Simulated scan of single mutants.
Amino acid sequence: MKSSSHSTLHNRNVENRPIPSEYFSGNDYKKYTDENPKQCQASSSHSNADLITNHLNETTAAVKTANGTRQHQWTINDFEVGAPLGRGRFGHVYCVREKKSKYIVALKAIIKDQISTPRLAKQLISEISIQSRLKHPNILRLYGFFHDDQRIFLLLEYAPGGELYRRMQKEKILRESEAAGYVYQLCNALSYLHSKQIIHRDIKPENILIGVYGILKLADFGWSAERTETNKRTTLCGTLDYLAPEMLNGSGYDEKIDLWCLGVFTYEMIVGKPPFDSQTQQDTIRLIRTNELSFPQAASNHARDLISQLIRRNPSERMPLNEVIQHQWIIENANMKAIDENYEKINKSTLMNHKNEN
């Protein structure tokens, strides 16, 4: 059984199947419940969903109190629903357009009855809490949220380029100039996250989207966690090919696991597969723990050097982000000037930003 892209802790090949109509139509939802009573029975999932909706209500009330102004209360009727964009651990995502402004966003829909455990409820609360306060050009924005009796909706920034993973599946290997540009941008995103004491914990091409002007967008904060000064994290989470050895060993970890993932991500972009790809999960785990890293001849010396300084067994020996963006491979390959100019274009942005922040 393959580890890479075939058998991971979370399946990397999630099919982009059409999304059931019950996610958006009240009448269709009733029809769905009538035809599928076993799937929609009242259960403990109601109380799990209540944890989330109570959190959303409290957050909305707190924002309203802090701003002293009444915020627009979104409903699904404010949007024209377009094509499905994908599906994730917590829900399905559509491209939608806000009717008045014609502004396009991505709308993630989650049916409350599918939140089956308190752990999932708390994880979703954490995702919303973290992503809603992040504002950086290389991080996918969470503009807002709302809910009704059956569903929870998250308003997300629309990334027209889609998942980087889909492109890598098609092209197999990216040019080093392009890969270096993505590494530069991901370093900027991670520097911002780590300054906020947040660990992403699930960096991989599936969680990298391409926005306007080709800007990288780090997405999916479902496994993200806040770093504490006193205790290291111990949760085993993420995708097998990207797991750092300290996470596998259960010895506790901090934000330096993101540096390991950055190295694996860089390797996969320029080689076409993760560095510890193997026939079985057991072999992949062994290779990660022993750090048996090898490169094809086509990989440049500078790329090998950078990756080797990120994929280190000892977390304290991994190259820090401020040094990564000054590495010779980045300097020679990434068009940092063009990327920084695109940042300026984004900063001038958008109607949705003004609508939600004023």
Rank of each mutant, 00 (worst) to 15 (best):
M1E: 12
S5Q: 10
S7K: 14
S7E: 11
T8M: 03
L9Y: 04
H10G: 11
N11S: 14
V14Y: 11
P18H: 06
P20Y: 05
F24H: 10
F24A: 03
S25E: 12
D28C: 08
Y29E: 14
K30I: 15
Y32K: 14
Y32V: 03
T33P: 02
P37G: 08
K38C: 02
A42N: 12
S45E: 08
H46M: 11
N48A: 08
D50I: 13
L51H: 06
H55N: 12
T60G: 12
T65E: 14
T65W: 01
Q73F: 04
W74F: 15
I76F: 06
N77M: 07
F79W: 15
G88M: 12
G88T: 13
R89D: 05
V93W: 05
V96W: 09
R97A: 12
R97T: 15
E98F: 10
S101V: 04
I104M: 09
V105Q: 05
A109D: 03
D113L: 13
K122D: 05
S129H: 14
K135F: 09
K135M: 05
P137Y: 07
D148F: 08
D148E: 08
R151H: 15
I152W: 06
I152T: 04
L154C: 09
P160H: 11
L164V: 12
R166D: 15
R167I: 11
E171V: 15
K172P: 05
R175N: 15
E178D: 15
G181C: 10
G181V: 08
Y182L: 13
Y184H: 12
L186G: 04
L186T: 08
S191G: 14
S191C: 05
Y192M: 03
Y192V: 06
I203C: 03
P205Y: 04
I208W: 02
I210V: 15
G214W: 09
I215K: 06
I215N: 10
L216R: 05
W223K: 01
A225R: 12
T228D: 14
K232T: 07
T234D: 02
T235Q: 01
L236G: 01
G238R: 02
L243M: 15
A244I: 00
P245V: 00
E246V: 00
N249F: 00
D254M: 00
K256R: 15
W260S: 00
F265Y: 02
F265N: 01
T266W: 01
M269K: 02
M269H: 01
G272I: 05
G272E: 07
D277S: 13
D277R: 03
S278D: 13
D283T: 05
D283V: 01
R286C: 00
R286T: 07
L287N: 11
N291V: 00
F295L: 07
P296R: 08
Q297W: 07
N301P: 00
H302W: 01
I307P: 02
L310A: 06
R313K: 13
S316E: 11
R318A: 02
R318F: 03
M319Q: 09
L321I: 09
L321Y: 04
V324Y: 03
I325D: 07
H327Q: 09
H327G: 09
A338R: 09
E341M: 07
N342E: 06
Y343M: 04
E344T: 11
K348P: 01
M352F: 12
N353Y: 14
K355C: 04
K355N: 07
